[in-house]
Design a protein around this nucleic acid. Structure first.
Lengths: 253, 253
DNA sequence: CGTGAGTTTGAGTAGCCTCAACCTGAGTGG
DNA sequence: CCACTCAGGTTGAGGCTACTCAAACTCACG
């Protein structure tokens, strides 16, 4: 039974992790085919959200993590006094909800930025599963530590980088993540509004807009609304990790 | 064997988690006495670091997580071009290294801010252990998600808060963590230098210094070097979560 | 008693925010 | 089909927060 390769005909909602082009992103490579079958038993696939829908909302009971299949999601936290911080953008193959693992309620809200489909991983089952599949536990530790590192990188950006550096970084990050999915690393549509970018990077919308036009005037990018084309990746790279110290490059200066 | 209550005489390096006053902080409450014994078999206790020593350094092979027993530790990440971001301060009962779980090398460096003793949890053993003790796995998920949330809170501070708000928040955070250990929440020594505070909060040292004196002049705190006394917790609380919008308080404004 | 790291204070500056106006394009309804 | 609307985006002017640079102070330490 475990070895039967399901074609997806008889149980359309399951058995497609194996065929999913994203499985090498969201699932542990270490997991065997056998294990995949078990995983598929608990994963609910194909839920669809329209633009603006919440996948889950902060402070509601925590039930599941979600893997993005298509579309894009933004997560954000809101404080008592109402200000919001976008904590991440999630593209296909990426997992949402790790910051709430083992909490009783969601630590952030997740909102679909466009028409989005996700796979749901109910945590109740996950607890058993990770117990049975050591590889999966390992994978979750990995994903969560990755998430911590991402967040630390964000903190570094927010505290040390200029507006231009932050935006160059974001563009390159998106570029890399598109590339990973075999899409063009230089030409893509931003799934999020300027507002979201500004909030995420700790800037005012106006600043984001100004930097975009500045980059465009310098011939680094071509941007029309959410369409962007990265014309000079090297230059963006240089900007994104600009050195404070002028010239030199040595430590002894 | 598992039930023998060790007094600490015959194996001084083990068997003291049960007596450790911090165990309710760093260890899962869910873990039973039996399990504690197993934990103690793999935990190496009592390593001492002097001020300035590294508990571990970024990019070196990841081997262990560490629980702070006494003293204080700061963690920081360093980029290629040399700038540093302090990512956290860790007091007794808190766990370091979670951001490196399941990586091959440490994602940050951990430096003792004063004479510090730690307990080491080698990860190789942890993998088996979490398998045997479901509660422990749960606890790690919890700690890691907590770490993600902390980091998101930091990001929010860095992107949305003024210098005064950030420093008030930090003071209150420390206050709360001292209180948790039954120490005075209003009178304590800062384990870190102004420089570390500045870096952590994304400010210049001078700004930190200025805010401290401003708070002092307003009668909110008393500060002499690293000694601080919080004189008006309520006021600090108000400052730390100040509302941007003037007056009103309603959403409809 | 010099030395140097850590801290404080002051003066001037710059990057980004705020406020305000205008533009653009998609959706709506007459 | 065109005017209207509204959200999202762009552009400009001015101001403020926190930075930079510079200097003085404190204190632990050899």
């Amino acid at each position: 039974m475990a070895q039967t390769i399901k074609t997806g005909k008889n149980s359309p909602l399951k058995a497609s992790c194996q065929q999913c082009s994203l499985s090498n992103l969201c699932l542990p490579l270490a997991v065997s085919d056998d294990d995949l079958d078990r995983l598929e038993d608990v994963i609910q696939q194909g839920q669809i959200y329209s633009r603006g829908d919440y996948v889950f909302e902060q402070s509601t009971p925590f039930r599941s993590c979600y893997a993005v299949r298509s579309g894009a999601v933004k997560t954000s936290i809101v404080t008592e006094n109402g200000d919001e911080q976008v904590t991440g953008f999630f593209l296909p193959g990426e997992l949402i909800g790790l910051d709430s693992m083992s909490s009783s309620s969601y630590a952030c809200s997740a909102k679909a930025l466009e028409r989005t489909s996700v796979c749901e991983l109910p945590v109740e089952h996950l607890d058993d599963l990770t117990h049975k599949l050591p590889g999966l536990q390992h994978h979750f530790f990995h994903l969560m530590s990755q998430e911590i590192q991402n967040s630390h990188q964000l903190a570094l950006m927010l505290s040390k980088r200029t507006a231009e550096e932050r935006i160059a970084s974001l563009l390159l990050s998106l570029s890399g993540r598109f590339a990973r999915r075999k899409l063009s690393p230089t030409q893509f549509n931003l799934p999020m509004a300027r507002n979201d970018i500004a909030n995420f990077l700790g800037l005012a919308v106006e600043t984001v807009s100004r930097v975009f036009t500045r980059f465009q005037n310098q011939g680094l990018i071509r941007a029309r609304g959410r369409e962007v084309e990265l014309l000079d990746l090297d230059a963006l790279q240089n900007i994104s990790q600009e050195d404070d110290q002028p010239a030199c490059g040595r430590k002894g200066c």
